[in-house]
Write a protein that binds this DNA or RNA. Structure first.
Length: 274
DNA sequence: ATGGTTGTAAAACAA
């Protein structure tokens, strides 16, 4: 048994794993130094970013190139914006999943990487149940589900990750009683996300971690991080061919402790590639 | 935990 572990560690050391990460950075301009620092530490093969809040001609592609990362991105002024950074080039990049004639918020980017499809979404927050923004969130999820089932098959190797703005279960928040039925924790959001999941995804984090109290987002307000009043709303989901090869998945809360942090922490998963 | 903080961008709005 010890030998088996040793062999796996050897594979790990040889780089026969793909490390995929997802991080809502809440402005790539403000967070650039933190992201560069974290890339150097974590060395992900793929880093999906959300809330870059950068127009494309200001996206720091050169800074990432200088530390060995390709980047594909789609942004807009002030809000939203997503990107995929990668060690090897990305192909078949798409920046819309809705019909082209619909002017969309920049919340989706997809690319292929080494035979796998990487889908990165910044799902709308939804603000409050019953609001217009909540309807937009529900519409977004329904449209995404149609896109997924029309374009892909669950037998394909697909990673869907990003800021989902939904805590899938009660154990994914700091207090079930306080959060159940609220935004990110409503039955409607959870049922819809579960329906999309049932198309063929595994939550790689829950594949490897069963315990409650594991969070990826803490509100800047009310000292939420210090008090660990968090939610697990950032996810890396994989179809079966990939989830079968997923070694581990975790949330790295260290960057949430750094100076001027994002309110989100990065989520990671590793996949055996041989 | 019912206000508070952060980011964008220049006053509200989003989260």
């Amino acid at each position: 048994m010890v030998q088996v572990v040793a062999v796996e560690n050897l594979f790990f050391a040889q780089g026969n794993n793909m490390i995929v990460a997802s991080w809502n950075v809440n402005s790539i301009t403000v967070r650039l130094e933190s992201v560069l620092k974290w890339l150097n530490i974590a060395q992900p093969d793929i880093l999906c970013l959300q809330e870059t809040k950068s127009v494309d001609n200001k996206f720091p592609a050169l800074a990432f190139q200088q530390v060995g990362y390709h980047s594909e991105f789609i942004g807009q002024p002030s809000y939203n914006g997503v990107a995929i950074l990668s060690k090897l080039p990305l192909t078949d990049v798409e920046k819309h999943f809705e019909p082209e004639e619909v002017p969309s918020q920049k919340r989706f980017i997809k690319a292929d990487y080494q035979g796998s499809t990487i889908i990165n979404t910044y799902i709308p927050n939804g603000q409050a149940l019953g609001s217009e923004k909540f309807s937009y969130k529900i519409d977004f999820l329904n449209t995404f589900e149609r896109y997924l089932s029309a374009k892909y098959k669950p037998s394909q190797p697909i990673i869907w990750c990003g800021d989902f703005n939904i805590a899938p279960e009660g154990i994914d928040t700091f207090d079930i009683a306080q959060t159940d039925g609220q935004i990110m924790c409503s039955e409607q959001e959870r049922a819809l996300l579960e329906r999309i999941k049932s198309w063929g995804f595994t939550d790689t984090f829950r594949q490897h971690n069963k315990e409650p109290g594991q969070f990826s987002w803490w509100d800047y307000r009310v000292g939420a991080f210090r008090r660990n009043l968090g939610y697990r709303i950032d996810h890396i989901w994989a179809t079966e061919t990939l989830s079968k090869t997923c070694n581990q998945s975790w949330i790295d809360i260290e960057p949430r402790k750094w100076e001027r942090p994002s309110d989100h922490a990065p989520v990671l998963a590793t996949f055996r590639t041989i």
